[in-house]
Design a protein around this nucleic acid. Sequence first.
DNA 1: CTGAAAGCGCTTACAG
DNA 2: CTGAAAGCGCTTACAG
Lengths: 340, 340
Amino acid sequence: MSSQNLKLSDIAEALGLSKTTVSKVLNGYSDVNALTRKKVLDYVNKVDYKPNSQASFLRTKESKTVALILPQFNHEFFNSIFEGVLKNVQKSDYTLFVGCSNESSETEKELIAHYLRLNVEAIFISISQETTSFEALKSIQENEKILVLFDKIEKTILCPKVVIEDRKAAFSATEHLIKQGCRQILHFRGAYLPQISVDRYLGYRDALEAYQIPFDKSQVFLCEYGNEKEGYYAAKKVIESGMKFDGLFAITDLTALGAIQYFKLNKIKIPEDVAVVGFGNWKLSSFTFPSITTINQPGVQMGEKIFEVFLKEKKAKKEGLNPENETIKIPSQLIVRESS
Amino acid sequence: MSSQNLKLSDIAEALGLSKTTVSKVLNGYSDVNALTRKKVLDYVNKVDYKPNSQASFLRTKESKTVALILPQFNHEFFNSIFEGVLKNVQKSDYTLFVGCSNESSETEKELIAHYLRLNVEAIFISISQETTSFEALKSIQENEKILVLFDKIEKTILCPKVVIEDRKAAFSATEHLIKQGCRQILHFRGAYLPQISVDRYLGYRDALEAYQIPFDKSQVFLCEYGNEKEGYYAAKKVIESGMKFDGLFAITDLTALGAIQYFKLNKIKIPEDVAVVGFGNWKLSSFTFPSITTINQPGVQMGEKIFEVFLKEKKAKKEGLNPENETIKIPSQLIVRESS
DNA sequence: CTGAAAGCGCTTACAG
DNA sequence: CTGAAAGCGCTTACAG
């Protein structure tokens, strides 16, 4: 059953042909007699021969590998992206390397260098929170490899990108609160730099403006890492300040959850006293009490798109066309639950 | 900054040495003059040269790659394992391929064939639920690659294994229920085949026996996939049967959660009327209401061990020693929460 | 201690 | 339409 030890010369010998001819058939060259082609194809199929990819690479420089760099482990959204990418990779003849920067700029740099050395054809990356210099990312393109950015992108880098329309999504989250009757809406925002965090903040402001609710910057609190603890302490600050509020749009479900926990401790009713919307549709958000209204990010779909856009880009490159560098926007959905 | 285009011959030329000598230094051969060695090392460091791995492979057959095959996407435990493996891989000069069988025997087979073709040095796999024939797994060893099984293992295959002591863990989960005063303890068990599912069932029985509580097979319900829906419907069956019960040990946190949801709907109080223990310590189990008592499976640690045991095995093989084929047992912990 | 040469398994420009 | 030959970037047995 195993084709492990078969090589081109074995096939050629078995068929009484040259390695050249066999190789030509395998690579789809047209200058081969139809009967010869069939003979080769049949035999190759029968013995399940596949060329050694390392040897092919040495000649063609096509490694048939791509690398995915995620910023966090065990993060539902990034895992869905991984799932989507892998699904499409497994349908193709490519192989996927996966690394994790753990939000470290240094690790990110090392991973990129490592993958470049392995001659991957492309690197798909969601930029680490820490990263402020984009040399490493640019080195991918300088090495003639394809770079695809997703989720945490950098606008100034010219390359294909796959993103959620965060600004729109944040708009609809905030709009939903307004339609529920909220007028004093808090926003627990993410770090200042990442585009997604900025966009969600802007979407929040857009909605206030659209409904002529005055923006008050004291209603915005920083939750840099988007975890529960931050949400909990931001809620504490809110309560201790004595300010009035009736709604909260939090940058992530976890932040929302942390806030909800603090509110509950202080006998503040959800959604009666404060309506809460999170972001991300983490699995747990449907199991908490109350369950959390949120924005669903279709990670699997994003992952699939990432690989598709790479194939498209590669094809364009091969044909000598200019790269399109398109930005693909994946629609997200508001999921209404008990918290609002 | 980039070493992408440097090759051995460039280094050799720059230093006025032969490729042979440079290569010897890089590979740690001893028959090189100390000064020459230093000269090479310094230069190689300076220009950050690393040999092309595909070319090295062609000669040495050491690909410096390993593959991890997970049975499920977006599964916290498996993601932790992935995290642990990747952590150790990223510390080494290896690269990790990751695939997902999606519990399909067919996909599993294809992935194994694919990775064998890529000449990985080892495959780490948690066997898919569906798999009943182990030819594909054995082909890994027939191809002289190292096989490491983890979590869902097959006892009859001789290879290194990394597992949770499921039987012991299930014992302590059940024992905890008994100590809380439960005497009529239900078990929502997993599928009949997987060792982990069998072991958890046996641990449950061990505990009953140890405390002289008669085992009653009508208290055991099948939840093949360990998801919420199954837990929900198993709980429904229990209630509809009218049987008495005061405790439940469920094969996974999700199963426990499903059961809890049904109990809550039927005004059965947790833990007063029925104490519930899950398995796995999924993130959500601490956020549900009530939060769920569970068994923590240290996935990251398991993942780290998997890679360590591979390195050990490889070393033994290289030195011509017999493989140890040890089974590494990772201890788990009972985490008591509101549900019990 | 150093290096020339063969060869790993492929692909492709070229000749016929 | 077919095939001999060169070469991708390494490593290593061998000669000196």
